[in-house]
Simulated assay, not measured.
Amino acid sequence: MELDIDDLTPRERSRIVKSAVTPRPIAWISTVDEEGADNLAPFSSYNYVSSSRPVVLFNSPTGDAGGLKDTARNALVTGEFAVNVVTEPHLEQMDHTSAPVPANESEFDLASVRRAECRRIDAPRVADAAVTMECTLYDSISIHDRLMVLGVVQYFHVAAEVLTDDEIDMTKLETVGRLGGPYYTVATPGTFKRRF
Protein backbone atom coordinates (compact mmCIF):
# COMPACT_ATOMS: atom_id res chain seq x y z
CA MET A 1 0.00 0.00 0.00
CA GLU A 2 1.35 3.41 -0.99
CA LEU A 3 -0.27 6.48 0.55
CA ASP A 4 0.24 10.18 -0.09
CA ILE A 5 -0.50 12.11 3.09
CA ASP A 6 -2.49 14.68 1.09
CA ASP A 7 -4.95 11.96 0.06
CA LEU A 8 -5.72 10.94 3.65
CA THR A 9 -8.12 12.36 6.22
CA PRO A 10 -6.69 13.62 9.51
CA ARG A 11 -8.10 10.51 11.24
CA GLU A 12 -6.44 8.18 8.72
CA ARG A 13 -3.07 9.94 9.12
CA SER A 14 -3.38 9.81 12.90
CA ARG A 15 -4.23 6.10 12.93
CA ILE A 16 -1.22 5.17 10.79
CA VAL A 17 1.22 7.22 12.89
CA LYS A 18 -0.19 5.92 16.19
CA SER A 19 0.01 2.33 14.95
CA ALA A 20 3.51 2.66 13.50
CA VAL A 21 5.07 4.51 16.44
CA THR A 22 4.61 1.78 19.02
CA PRO A 23 4.81 0.80 21.73
CA ARG A 24 4.40 4.32 23.06
CA PRO A 25 5.27 4.90 26.73
CA ILE A 26 2.51 6.40 28.84
CA ALA A 27 2.99 9.37 31.12
CA TRP A 28 0.34 9.29 33.86
CA ILE A 29 0.49 12.96 34.67
CA SER A 30 -0.70 14.53 37.88
CA THR A 31 -1.19 18.27 38.23
CA VAL A 32 -3.02 20.75 40.39
CA ASP A 33 -4.84 23.86 39.22
CA GLU A 34 -4.58 27.36 40.66
CA GLU A 35 -7.55 26.63 42.95
CA GLY A 36 -5.89 23.51 44.37
CA ALA A 37 -7.99 20.91 42.51
CA ASP A 38 -5.90 17.93 41.42
CA ASN A 39 -5.96 16.18 38.06
CA LEU A 40 -4.62 12.85 36.79
CA ALA A 41 -4.55 11.81 33.12
CA PRO A 42 -2.59 9.49 30.81
CA PHE A 43 -0.67 10.73 27.77
CA SER A 44 0.77 8.24 25.28
CA SER A 45 2.67 10.87 23.33
CA TYR A 46 5.51 11.11 25.84
CA ASN A 47 9.28 10.68 26.02
CA TYR A 48 12.50 12.22 27.31
CA VAL A 49 14.73 14.67 25.43
CA SER A 50 17.68 14.90 27.83
CA SER A 51 18.95 12.39 30.35
CA SER A 52 22.05 13.71 32.16
CA ARG A 53 19.95 16.73 33.15
CA PRO A 54 16.59 15.02 32.67
CA VAL A 55 13.92 16.74 30.61
CA VAL A 56 10.72 14.91 29.67
CA LEU A 57 7.93 15.93 27.34
CA PHE A 58 4.31 15.13 26.66
CA ASN A 59 2.05 16.26 23.87
CA SER A 60 -1.52 17.32 24.50
CA PRO A 61 -4.29 17.98 21.98
CA THR A 62 -5.25 21.63 21.75
CA GLY A 63 -8.90 20.73 21.12
CA ASP A 64 -11.27 21.58 18.30
CA ALA A 65 -12.23 24.87 19.91
CA GLY A 66 -8.64 25.73 20.80
CA GLY A 67 -9.05 24.63 24.41
CA LEU A 68 -6.33 22.73 26.21
CA LYS A 69 -6.85 19.64 28.31
CA ASP A 70 -6.80 20.27 32.07
CA THR A 71 -3.37 18.65 32.46
CA ALA A 72 -1.61 20.86 29.92
CA ARG A 73 -3.38 23.99 31.14
CA ASN A 74 -2.45 23.23 34.76
CA ALA A 75 1.19 22.58 33.82
CA LEU A 76 1.40 25.92 32.00
CA VAL A 77 -0.36 27.92 34.73
CA THR A 78 1.43 26.42 37.75
CA GLY A 79 4.71 25.51 36.05
CA GLU A 80 4.63 22.01 37.59
CA PHE A 81 3.59 18.44 36.86
CA ALA A 82 4.48 14.90 37.94
CA VAL A 83 5.00 11.98 35.58
CA ASN A 84 3.95 8.68 37.15
CA VAL A 85 5.14 5.54 35.35
CA VAL A 86 2.28 3.17 34.52
CA THR A 87 2.83 -0.51 35.34
CA GLU A 88 0.57 -3.51 34.75
CA PRO A 89 -1.13 -3.53 38.18
CA HIS A 90 -2.45 0.00 37.50
CA LEU A 91 -3.51 -0.46 33.87
CA GLU A 92 -7.25 -0.42 34.51
CA GLN A 93 -7.06 2.55 36.89
CA MET A 94 -4.91 4.46 34.40
CA ASP A 95 -7.37 3.79 31.60
CA HIS A 96 -10.26 4.94 33.83
CA THR A 97 -8.54 8.30 34.40
CA SER A 98 -8.81 9.08 30.69
CA ALA A 99 -12.59 9.44 31.08
CA PRO A 100 -13.83 13.00 30.53
CA VAL A 101 -14.77 14.66 33.82
CA PRO A 102 -15.30 18.31 34.79
CA ALA A 103 -12.13 20.22 35.72
CA ASN A 104 -13.12 20.43 39.40
CA GLU A 105 -13.55 16.64 39.74
CA SER A 106 -10.48 14.58 40.59
CA GLU A 107 -9.53 11.53 38.54
CA PHE A 108 -7.69 10.28 41.64
CA ASP A 109 -11.11 9.92 43.28
CA LEU A 110 -12.85 8.71 40.12
CA ALA A 111 -10.46 5.75 39.69
CA SER A 112 -9.68 5.19 43.42
CA VAL A 113 -6.00 6.06 42.98
CA ARG A 114 -4.05 6.69 46.19
CA ARG A 115 -2.32 10.09 46.40
CA ALA A 116 1.03 10.94 47.98
CA GLU A 117 2.74 14.28 48.42
CA CYS A 118 5.55 15.37 46.17
CA ARG A 119 8.72 16.88 47.64
CA ARG A 120 9.40 19.78 45.25
CA ILE A 121 6.04 20.54 43.64
CA ASP A 122 2.48 21.09 44.87
CA ALA A 123 0.83 18.48 42.64
CA PRO A 124 0.19 15.08 44.23
CA ARG A 125 1.73 11.91 42.84
CA VAL A 126 0.38 8.39 42.45
CA ALA A 127 1.36 6.77 45.75
CA ASP A 128 1.73 3.28 44.30
CA ALA A 129 3.61 4.25 41.11
CA ALA A 130 6.86 2.36 40.62
CA VAL A 131 8.55 5.57 39.49
CA THR A 132 7.47 9.20 39.68
CA MET A 133 9.33 12.21 38.29
CA GLU A 134 8.52 15.61 39.74
CA CYS A 135 8.89 18.24 37.01
CA THR A 136 8.97 22.00 36.61
CA LEU A 137 8.04 23.61 33.31
CA TYR A 138 10.94 24.07 30.89
CA ASP A 139 9.02 25.30 27.84
CA SER A 140 6.03 24.63 25.61
CA ILE A 141 5.80 24.53 21.83
CA SER A 142 2.67 24.55 19.64
CA ILE A 143 2.88 22.08 16.74
CA HIS A 144 -0.20 21.90 14.50
CA ASP A 145 -2.99 20.48 16.71
CA ARG A 146 -0.75 19.66 19.69
CA LEU A 147 1.03 21.45 22.49
CA MET A 148 4.38 19.96 23.46
CA VAL A 149 5.04 20.51 27.17
CA LEU A 150 8.60 20.02 28.41
CA GLY A 151 9.52 19.61 32.06
CA VAL A 152 12.81 19.52 33.94
CA VAL A 153 12.90 16.59 36.36
CA GLN A 154 13.57 17.91 39.86
CA TYR A 155 13.02 14.80 41.98
CA PHE A 156 12.64 11.02 41.54
CA HIS A 157 10.56 8.58 43.58
CA VAL A 158 11.51 4.96 42.86
CA ALA A 159 9.86 1.98 44.58
CA ALA A 160 12.25 -0.45 46.26
CA GLU A 161 10.60 -3.44 44.61
CA VAL A 162 11.82 -2.43 41.13
CA LEU A 163 15.46 -2.03 42.22
CA THR A 164 18.42 -4.38 42.04
CA ASP A 165 21.70 -3.07 43.47
CA ASP A 166 20.18 0.44 43.68
CA GLU A 167 19.35 0.58 39.97
CA ILE A 168 16.01 0.13 38.23
CA ASP A 169 15.79 -3.47 37.06
CA MET A 170 13.75 -3.72 33.86
CA THR A 171 12.88 -7.33 34.64
CA LYS A 172 10.94 -5.95 37.64
CA LEU A 173 9.35 -2.90 35.97
CA GLU A 174 6.33 -4.02 33.93
CA THR A 175 5.69 -0.76 32.12
CA VAL A 176 2.53 -0.36 30.07
CA GLY A 177 2.67 0.99 26.53
CA ARG A 178 0.05 2.10 24.06
CA LEU A 179 -0.44 0.47 20.67
CA GLY A 180 -2.62 1.56 17.76
CA GLY A 181 -6.38 1.47 18.24
CA PRO A 182 -7.68 0.49 21.68
CA TYR A 183 -4.74 -1.76 22.55
CA TYR A 184 -2.13 -1.69 25.31
CA THR A 185 0.99 -3.81 25.81
CA VAL A 186 3.12 -4.71 28.83
CA ALA A 187 6.92 -4.58 28.59
CA THR A 188 8.67 -7.90 29.04
CA PRO A 189 12.42 -7.98 28.25
CA GLY A 190 13.31 -10.29 25.38
CA THR A 191 16.15 -12.75 25.46
CA PHE A 192 18.30 -10.70 23.07
CA LYS A 193 20.40 -8.08 24.88
CA ARG A 194 22.02 -4.97 23.48
CA ARG A 195 25.66 -5.61 22.56
CA PHE A 196 26.89 -2.25 21.29
Results as ranks from 00 to 15, higher is better:
residue 2 E to R: 08
residue 3 L to Q: 13
residue 4 D to A: 15
residue 5 I to Q: 13
residue 5 I to P: 12
residue 7 D to E: 15
residue 8 L to G: 07
residue 9 T to M: 08
residue 13 R to I: 13
residue 30 S to N: 06
residue 32 V to P: 12
residue 34 E to C: 08
residue 36 G to A: 08
residue 46 Y to I: 00
residue 49 V to I: 14
residue 54 P to K: 05
residue 54 P to W: 00
residue 56 V to T: 01
residue 56 V to S: 00
residue 60 S to I: 09
residue 65 A to W: 07
residue 66 G to M: 03
residue 67 G to F: 09
residue 68 L to I: 00
residue 70 D to Q: 06
residue 73 R to K: 12
residue 77 V to H: 08
residue 80 E to I: 12
residue 82 A to G: 03
residue 83 V to D: 10
residue 87 T to V: 11
residue 90 H to T: 02
residue 92 E to D: 15
residue 95 D to W: 05
residue 99 A to D: 00
residue 101 V to K: 14
residue 103 A to I: 01
residue 105 E to Y: 08
residue 112 S to I: 01
residue 112 S to C: 05
residue 118 C to S: 15
residue 122 D to C: 03
residue 123 A to C: 09
residue 127 A to Q: 13
residue 129 A to V: 10
residue 132 T to K: 09
residue 140 S to V: 01
residue 144 H to K: 14
residue 145 D to M: 02
residue 148 M to V: 15
residue 150 L to Q: 05
residue 152 V to D: 14
residue 153 V to G: 06
residue 153 V to D: 00
residue 157 H to C: 06
residue 159 A to Q: 13
residue 161 E to M: 08
residue 167 E to T: 14
residue 179 L to N: 05
residue 181 G to R: 03
residue 184 Y to H: 10
residue 185 T to P: 04
residue 186 V to Y: 06
residue 186 V to T: 13
residue 191 T to I: 01
residue 191 T to W: 01
residue 192 F to W: 10
